[in-house]
Structures are given as structure tokens and as C-alpha cells.
Simulated scan of single mutants.
Amino acid sequence: MEIKPLKIGDLVAKIPVIQGGMGVGISLSRLAGAVALEGGVGIISTAQIGFQSPDFDKNPIAANLKAIGEEIKKAKEIAKGGIIGVNIMVATKDYEEYVKAAVKAGVDLIISGAGLPTTLPKLIEGSRTKIAPIVSSLKSADVICKIWDRKYKKSPDMVVIEGAKAGGHLGFTVEEIEQFDESEYDKEIEKIISLVNQYGEKYNKQIPVVVAGGVFDQKDLMHYLELGASGVQIASRFVATYECDADEKYKQAYINAKKEDVVIVKSPVGLPGRAINNPFLERLKEGPIKVSSCRKCLSHCNPATIPYCITQALINAAKGDIDHGLLFCGENVYRINKMVHVKDILDEFR
């Protein structure tokens, strides 16, 4: 099967690969810009994006909103006309302000999950920004498409289907993750693609569907193209690149990870997630780690009752303090064994 460019409305990526958003501080302007420059779609994670700002502890949301504009601007300068998007979690505190900041900065694409982005069409009105919900089931795809259709007379510009092999927070129960059957899930993917195509016909446009979660090489891309998808989203592989924004120790942890090091953890907000086992996760088995301050990251988080602060754990990891940090990863992280350039990865998908 021929590999074709990924078309998202009037946006065209020569290579049908989206680099997944990784927070905190793992996919910022340097990585996203490099991916877009090489013909893929570069994605900046807005999760606590302003963590390096001197004002972050005092006013985290203001620091984040400022950093969104700065990182998009820097990424676009690197990308030289390539596609730059952001990943904004619906669960983010002040979600709507983050979306508005990205639109104001002229972002090409907003990918949004960790909840259903029911208000997203309203927030991008009057802009050229494209919008794409992340879904994990036919049910969630149906709900979001119906809401956007009914309330805003709009369809998604793209849909991202994220399976249970993805890194970070997952839209599945622990039981579903443990019993995940890839061939069975392929049927779900086909059903979602069929649903999306119906809305494409209604709105007289092509709506690409991109598959994420456990995607590693061209073989995976070809598999999903045969199911009817238009491309794939890859995150973990881009961590071990020279262009990735993460600390070198973080990258090395990915390279050193073995299959048995990959574990399912429970996030402070109750969602399961996939990460590399390390001293931090071992320490958590002994009991909660006291939260000293709140950085206002997630809307449904109570610092008094959570087992640890996910913001602090992710910031520690991003800065290279990996023994005290949370290292989110995809299931196939153990297959990564060396540092490469972004171009090396994308060349495999041309």
C-alpha cells in the first residue's frame, strides 16, 4: 500500500506521522519544530509548559499561558512552514484559557483528550486552527461527534484513536489494559473510522483518522493504513532523539528500559498510566508522598487526598532527577536502544 501525505483540511504533512504530545517538558518547541521540519506533525504538550519560568511556583497558570505562545513561536521558526500543533488535556485546570492562548499564537492544530473536548469548536471560532479529539472507543467517538454536530454544526478536522499500549494516562481501566487484545481492538478502530467517514460525508470533507498507542515502525503504519486510517501517532520513540526537549538522563532511562520495567501505575487523579519502574514508584509503595504546594494542573485534583503531586514528579523527571520522577512511556519503550535524530525516525516512514 502506498504511503500518502496526511491531509488535515488545508494542512498537508508529507509524512503521515504525528509526534505525540508528552508532558511535562518532554515535547516542547525543539522536538515539535524538528518533527515538523522533516515533514511530520510536531506537537507541543501544554501540560505545565511554563515549569521553567521563575514565576511558575507563584502563578503557574499565568506562566503556562505565556509559555504556550513562546513555545509555539519558537517551534514555528524551526519548522519553516511545517505543521505545529499542541496537545491540551481537557482535564487541565482553566482548559479554555489554554486553548485560547494556543489559538492566539496561531497554532495549526489542537489535539485534545483526557476527557471529551465538548466546547472546543466554540473556542477556535474565527481561526484557522484545526481540532482533533482523542478517543479510545466507538462510544466516545460517537458522543463527541454528535455533540459537535448538534451544538456547533461542526465535525472534527481529524480524529486520534489511542489504544491501550500508549504511554501516560490511558482511557481504559486496568482490567481492559491487562486483557487488551490488539486484533479485537482493530475491529473497534474500523468501526470508529466508519463513523468518522459518515460525518465526513455529511460535511463534505475528508476527516483523517490517526491511530496511536504502541505504534513503532513502518510495519505498524502499513497495518493501520490497511484498516482505513490515514496515519499514526508516535511518542516514545521521539524521546531518545537528540532534538527531544527532555534531560539527557531521561532519554537514557528510555534507552536502558527493559520490557519488565514497564508498569501500570495509578495517577493521583485516579486514571491508570504506563511508566518505567524506578525508585520513585518503589517509594510510593510505602505510602503517600506529602504535597507541599499546588501548581493548579488538573481540575479534579485535591492536594489533601492525593498520594503524590504528579506535576512535581513529572518536573523532576524532565529535569533529570529520574529517581524522584515519574517516567511515563509507551509499551514498546524497551525496543528503543540508542539515540537517533528525528530525521532518522521519519525517514523510516517516507
Results as ranks from 00 to 15, higher is better:
8 I>P: 00
8 I>L: 06
9 G>Q: 09
11 L>W: 12
14 K>H: 04
16 P>H: 00
16 P>W: 01
18 I>N: 05
19 Q>G: 03
24 V>K: 02
27 S>A: 06
32 A>P: 05
33 G>K: 12
35 V>C: 01
35 V>D: 08
42 G>V: 02
48 Q>N: 15
48 Q>H: 13
48 Q>W: 07
49 I>E: 04
54 P>M: 00
63 A>T: 07
65 L>I: 05
67 A>D: 03
71 E>C: 03
72 I>K: 10
89 M>H: 00
89 M>F: 06
91 A>I: 15
91 A>F: 09
95 Y>H: 02
99 V>Y: 06
100 K>F: 07
100 K>L: 12
100 K>Y: 04
101 A>T: 14
102 A>K: 04
104 K>I: 14
109 L>M: 05
112 S>E: 08
115 G>R: 13
118 T>D: 06
122 K>G: 08
124 I>T: 15
124 I>V: 15
128 R>S: 14
135 V>D: 14
136 S>V: 00
141 A>R: 13
141 A>F: 13
142 D>H: 08
143 V>G: 10
146 K>Y: 15
147 I>T: 09
149 D>K: 08
150 R>F: 09
151 K>G: 13
151 K>W: 08
152 Y>V: 01
153 K>R: 11
154 K>F: 02
157 D>V: 15
158 M>C: 06
161 I>G: 07
163 G>H: 08
164 A>C: 06
165 K>S: 09
168 G>L: 04
172 F>L: 06
174 V>D: 14
180 F>A: 02
185 Y>N: 13
192 I>P: 09
194 S>A: 11
198 Q>N: 12
206 Q>L: 10
208 P>E: 00
214 G>A: 06
218 Q>F: 09
222 M>Q: 10
224 Y>C: 05
225 L>G: 12
225 L>Q: 10
231 G>P: 14
233 Q>I: 02
237 R>V: 04
248 E>T: 11
251 K>Y: 11
253 A>P: 10
255 I>R: 12
255 I>P: 08
260 E>H: 07
262 V>K: 07
265 V>I: 11
267 S>A: 08
267 S>R: 10
271 L>F: 07
271 L>A: 13
274 R>I: 11
274 R>T: 10
276 I>P: 03
277 N>W: 02
290 K>S: 13
290 K>G: 07
294 C>F: 04
295 R>C: 10
299 S>T: 15
304 A>V: 00
306 I>Q: 03
308 Y>I: 01
309 C>K: 03
312 Q>S: 14
315 I>H: 02
315 I>M: 05
319 K>S: 14
328 F>W: 11
330 G>T: 08
339 M>D: 03
343 K>R: 15
347 D>K: 08
349 F>K: 07
